[in-house]
Design a protein around this nucleic acid. Structure first.
Lengths: 216, 216
DNA sequence: GCTCCGTCCATAACGTGGTTATGGACACCG
DNA sequence: CGGTGTCCATAACCACGTTATGGACGGAGC
């Protein structure tokens, strides 16, 4: 039980190699044999450490969610909770755009393991995906406590998450054009629309969203 | 060039068999050999009619979009354009929930063929996916002409499509629970939030969405 | 009617990629 | 120093997409 450094290292090596393959070869490039040569080992490594490609991809997806959470965590808590919320949206979108294949895999795997992401309307403390959602619930709660938005935090967070996730999904599919055009033309107005619809004043909403836009 | 009835029939037979396999076996069950036995033929049928599994799945995706468009077309134009818009959202969601694997495939294939779905901010008259979007743009235009919403129809439609698509994607992944709970707790409030944020009055928005809720 | 020609497709083989069986190398433990 | 367990290279196996080949069938022209 002495940490067997080599073994644990191989495990993370595999996940990192997988993310690398994914990044510059797409989902099709994520193959056991390519992984093996990538880390200078045989395909058996995949089986001793994960039991199969499915479990490895699951681990890759988890790592992706961990990065998403980390990126969302860099958005601090300013005195403008609506601006923070928009910052979360941008962080979510940036994570996806920087690693589109990984982001796609994350939600494909979430579907593959059926209910594993869980019912986020309730408690599901184990799942990584749920953690990123809880960050959003917390941010929403602050906007409500600040008197900017109205409604049940869980429902409001679900609505906002749906909208952002949908925008990101469609942007990755090539709608809304390339570059940051979609952010300016769709995501940013969408966030204004949402917070105004949830009780914020149009002027305050535009101001809060405008504040963060320079951070893109 | 005489219509070769048998041949065309085999083509649609393959697509229908594919949708059937997809429905009760998931994406993994969509295999050339299973398709072949399903229609009582050999795997060559896939190649004479489509050239390969990729093209067949593309055809399946197109058929899926055709069904989506058809379902959205059943939503008529009443004298309440916001209610019609919510009807479109429900039709979109119902199409996805009734054939979740097909819906997932549709957008996976859209990604696989890269830009084929096209840049929906511009004209892309060929793609089936674009047609369903144009239906939404038309509905949005009516709400604006009726004085209920404000803004550029293209931008507004993009925002609404993002939100609905995101909700549906997450519901299919198992968030928001089973049955129609998500509709009542997230999709319906989300639509109210959107139209209020886009200029409708809260009371009118709730009335319009409430009207249609019984149609779920 | 007969031949020619094109389409469609069954059979069988090939290539690739996930998986597994086997056995060896090495570290740790008694 | 032998025992034991983990890790992994090799090589084979198997499922599935694909392709090569040739035959069956039907229409076109004579």
């Amino acid at each position: 039980m002495s940490e067997r450094t080599r073994g644990e290292h191989a495990r993370t090596q595999l996940v990192e190699a997988a993310i690398r393959l994914l990044a510059d070869g797409g989902a099709e490039a994520l193959q056991a044999r390519k992984l093996a040569t990538e880390i200078g080992a045989s395909t058996m490594a995949v089986y001793t450490h994960f039991g199969g490609m499915a479990a490895l991809m699951d681990a890759v997806a988890r790592e992706g969610f961990r990065r998403l959470i980390a990126n969302m965590a860099t958005v601090g808590q300013s005195d403008d909770p609506v601006a923070d919320l928009y910052g979360l949206a941008l962080a979510y979108r940036r994570t996806a755009v920087e690693h589109p294949e990984l982001f796609t895999l994350m939600f494909r795997e979430a579907g593959a393991r059926g209910q594993a992401v869980g019912d986020l309307m309730k408690e599901s403390p184990s799942s990584e995906a749920a953690a990123s959602f809880r960050g959003m619930v917390a941010a929403v709660t602050r906007t409500i406590e600040a008197g900017r938005l109205k409604g049940d935090p869980l429902s409001v967070a679900s609505q906002i998450w749906s909208a952002i996730h949908g925008y990101v999904t469609l942007e990755l599919l090539g709608h809304f054009g390339r570059g940051d055009r979609g952010v300016a033309e769709v995501l940013s107005p969408l966030c204004v629309t949402l917070v105004v619809g949830l009780g914020d004043s149009p002027a305050a909403a535009r101001a809060s969203v405008g504040l963060v836009t320079t951070t893109v």
